[in-house]
């Protein structure tokens, strides 16, 4: 699989072209195009900070950035996870009729989600201008955080892409679980705000993924165990994915 991944380098322009084409295609004939995405996120952040800010009576200066970064990162995570089981099945027609490396499909999904993510960053930037965090070297931790996040999402997309092609219930299951996870994951709030329940939040892998990005942006470094667990997830996840892919990738064209 490693050499297959390496061979994919050649297909990078193709995947980017397709991911961008998909994004464009979705907003075809609309005036604003992909910026509808940004508007959607902005509206979400604005509305939620208005309501939750009022309900929870918290300091908007920390609450709104928490929520904005949380939502944007969550959209990336949820987008990848929710679509991962159909990564291969959605491309069944192509896979059955043209000789293409299988892995371009999950990677294309990942790239599309990253394109959306980059668009959404506009909202984060605006929020951070309005409510500036204390700037410092801590913000640089976003870079390893982002690498860990994307690295983890990548194996999830490939692994669940395979599982979703073989077991058709997985897509439905994940579809049901994602909205629930939105509330169980500290997206709108911070894990500390849970009080005694905080330890349960750390059983949720998504909590780590969000902390990796959000904490450095807001000016404090995530705890070492966040990195430790994320790196372990990365290793174990890729190991399992490579193992399954190595054993079963031959079957993918028959599953889709």
């Amino acid at each position: 699989m490693i050499d297959q991944l390496a061979a994919l380098y050649r297909y990078l322009p193709l995947m980017l072209y397709f991911a961008w084409g998909d994004t464009k295609g979705r907003y075809r004939r609309s005036v604003l195009g992909p910026f509808w995405l940004v508007i959607g996120t902005a509206a979400g952040v604005f509305g939620l900070s208005f309501i939750w800010g009022g309900l929870l009576k918290v300091d908007r200066a920390t609450f709104v950035p928490t929520l904005a970064v949380g939502i944007v990162v969550w959209q990336l995570i949820a987008g990848c996870v929710a679509e991962s089981p159909s990564a291969f099945t959605r491309n069944a027609a192509v896979m059955r009729n043209l000789k293409t490396p299988y892995l371009i499909f999950p990677l294309q999904l990942m790239l599309r989600q990253l394109i959306n993510f980059v668009h959404n960053l506009v909202v984060v930037v605006v929020v951070l201008i309005v409510f500036p965090p204390p700037l410092g070297a801590t913000q640089l931790l976003v870079i390893p955080g982002m690498l860990l996040l994307v690295g983890n999402l990548l194996w999830i997309v490939i692994l669940f892409g395979m599982l979703g092609a073989r077991f058709r219930d997985i897509e439905q299951t994940i579809g049901v679980l994602i909205p629930l996870m939105f509330f169980l994951t500290p997206v709108l709030y911070r894990p500390e705000q849970l009080g005694a329940m905080e330890q349960f939040a750390w059983l949720n892998p998504f909590t780590y993924m969000i902390s990796l990005i959000r904490d450095p942006i807001q000016g404090f470094a995530p705890a070492p165990f966040v990195y430790l667990i994320s790196a372990s997830m990365l290793l174990v996840g890729w190991w399992a994915t490579l193992w399954l892919y190595g054993r079963r990738h031959d079957r993918i064209p028959f599953w889709v």
Binding site: A93, N97, L98
Partner: peptide, 8 residues
């Protein structure tokens, strides 16, 4: 390959 009409 031109196998299925419309594939790709």
């Amino acid at each position: 390959t031109i196998i299925e009409l419309g594939a790709g």
